[in-house]
Nucleic acid binder design. Sequence first.
RNA 1: CGCGGGGUGGAGCAGUCGGUAGCUCGUCGGGCUCAUAACCCGGAGGUCAAAGGUUCAAGUCCUUUCCCCGCAACCA
Length: 640
Amino acid sequence: MGKYYITTAIAYTSRKPHIGNSYEIVLTDAIARFRRLQGHDVFFLTGTDEHGQKIEEYAQKAGVTPKEYVDKVAAEIRGICDLLNTTYDKFIRTTDDYHEKAVQNIFKKLYEQGDIYKSVYKGHYCVPCESFFTDSQLVDGKCPDCGGEARDTSEEAYFFKLSKYQKQLEEHIEKHPDFIYPESRKNEMLNNFIRPGLQDLCVSRSSFKWGIPVPIDEGHVIYVWIDALSNYITALGYDPYDECGDLYKKYWPADVHIIGKDIIRFHTIYWPIMLMALGEPLPEKVYGHPWLLFGTDKMSKSKGNVIYADDLIEVFGVDAVRYYLLSEMPHANDGSITYESMIERYNSDLANTIGNLVSRTVAMVNKYFDGTLPCNTCSEPIDDEFKATILSALPAVEKAFDEFKIANAAEAVLNVAKRSNKYIDETYPWLLAKEEDKKDRLSTVLYNLVESIRILAVLLKPFIPATSDKILAAINTDIDDYESIKTFGAIPAGSSVATCEPLFARIDAQKFIDELIAKNEAQQEKEKKVIEGLAPISIDEFAKVELRVAKVKACEPIKKAKKLLKLTLDDGSGEDRTVASGIAQWYKPDDLIGRNVIVVANLQPATLCGVESKGMILAGGEDEVKVIFVDDIEVGTKIR
RNA sequence: CGCGGGGUGGAGCAGUCGGUAGCUCGUCGGGCUCAUAACCCGGAGGUCAAAGGUUCAAGUCCUUUCCCCGCAACCA
């Protein structure tokens, strides 16, 4: 068994991580634990991505320095990784000094060999929004945010010659069909990005400061690509100019990068090209896992289906959360997560199948034999099929892990417990116990069960490590190596079991949901009172708002906009006024034509989906929006 | 035609290279009493979104249509 280097994407420290990040690290941890169990020398890397404009802004809002800000969030993220009982070997932060130094050297080297060059980044700048836009971002040549003029501008920046390596990358991907996984992603990358031709990549910014400085040019910072992606090698002590550390020599190239499907492009195009330019080997595989979504319904607090990782852990415990994430997530499609399905899986798989199996078996050994089984020699033909089924789990689990189908692996493990429960019904131990001359048979049956439970516990290690340890303690064994579960019968005859507390207490789903809803409602109530009411304004300030009654002359949906209706209003001024309003979900054009509404007449115009909107009409409501109609007030009347 | 993912028994999902439609939960009936109202067995329930095509054979391949869900763009 050789080395195995596995990584997660590094988490962006803009805010507290959501369940999606948690899924990724649990997934990666399960794989890392499984490979260790197999005997691989595993190095498991995770960490945080801490630079960029967004963080600069968040820090400013919070009134702290960027460094103070990321220190806090990085600690939170690391806390959640620990809470989830993940066994990362290193936690890298892109603000670590060795990383910053190595990144600067990487940049310098690429610049010196001509793969990075200085050029001009052309774009458009909107002064009021203080934002840059490319040609394609502009809407009708105007600022997509405010609809104002965006003036042509340009700034100096550094570019990375992706185009130079395009051919080489294409060849690599074709020669290594497993490089991008699952395969559907491979074609997506080749067809959409690589074959049409790669644009050189802008790798520096001068519009913000919070980043690693470009070593040869003080006004610029290194943009996210080179900074973040290179964490996979800097964490191992890579340096383009220096002797690389032992870790690097030992573990690089990575066996797999585990990432979300949204960043596949960066990991299968930019990253390999960077490595090619540096003359370093490429990772074996990039696995883009699917997303974890919240529920099937729309997210709604009152329904109790908004879900956070640490809340879940608090209620269900770490292993239940780990098991749920690993077993519920499909391999290719996005998975959804709800309290209902969580409880269902918890009760049926963990409490009923696994927990109860251990409980009833240990109880029988204690009850019938005082905890010590005298023999395991009285076999019957029915045992053979049982043992064969138990042993067949391992190859199935191996295959599933090889294919990154972790939910399938979990299912194969669960089958060990299911088959064992069935074996109890097949052998009637409670009847054997009533006949004195069946003691040997009874002992053998229980021995087989204890052994299958041991195999189950070992197989559960990657998924629910703490529970696995509890089970091993309950059957009083420390034989938990990979070899020992390839054959049946590692537990010596005459060994004893301990006792065990229930591993997972059943949860009453209805009661749980009711309590949750009550809790959420209470919290919402609280939040409402805080939010309610803005700061008082004077009558003069109110007078700055011009409200006028207007008649809807015409109305039509705006193409390409789901929510917008375009209204043509007669506001008494003699000129038609066009207003876009986000009420398409609730009103059809015919509902509005001919009716009088109140329009905010002196609102600054804005362009929405290509329509210039001058003003807005008054409407209110949360889930269902109602327009305020004033059919009995004359058109043009000012509202006070 | 903005990008993407989907429509398979009541719910959630598998279904490889086309070859008898499976799994979990629920439900109904039965069994059992070692165990956490758990465990085991059996039944019911599907024209695989629709139409057309290719084929000896289509959930699977091709074409068209309908419907959901994310993302993007806007709820001025």
